[in-house]
Amino acid sequence: MPKIIFRLLFSFVVFVGVFILIQRSLKPDSFGEYGHYRGNSLNDNKMRTPYFKGEAKCAECHEDVYDMKSMDLHDGVRCESCHYPKIDANTDCEVGPPIVKGTIKFCAQCHGINAARLDKGVPQLVLKEHYENQNCIECHNPHAPWDLKE
């Protein structure tokens, strides 16, 4: 074999070998396990802590409120629709209780008038005309909306 051909072949083999080595060392371990992605990434996505705990969890301690809500019109509205869990999932509710002020603005998110939600079974009110700028919870019990306070 002429020297020049040998050199060419040799450098080609070295080049391919080095390429394969580099590619192997850079490729993450689990890459390609299930497809063209890092298999461990599925676990990374699973590992995060959930913030919303679900109604059953709330009912463990607040059974009275939960029962009151289940009997009335806000039955379908889950606890965490209004009481967002603005606390870390690992700490107790007592550390940072989720408080809702029950202002007109807050209730208007669902009950403010909007042409798109007229026939959907949710009462629509022009809230400022409804009761002169008073906070809704001053008359209505949010857990049982028709339990009017005097």
Partner: peptide, 14 residues
Amino acid sequence: TKGLQPACVEACPT
């Protein structure tokens, strides 16, 4: 993957 509903489904009142 833990058997819960997504947060948006959990929060939807209707």
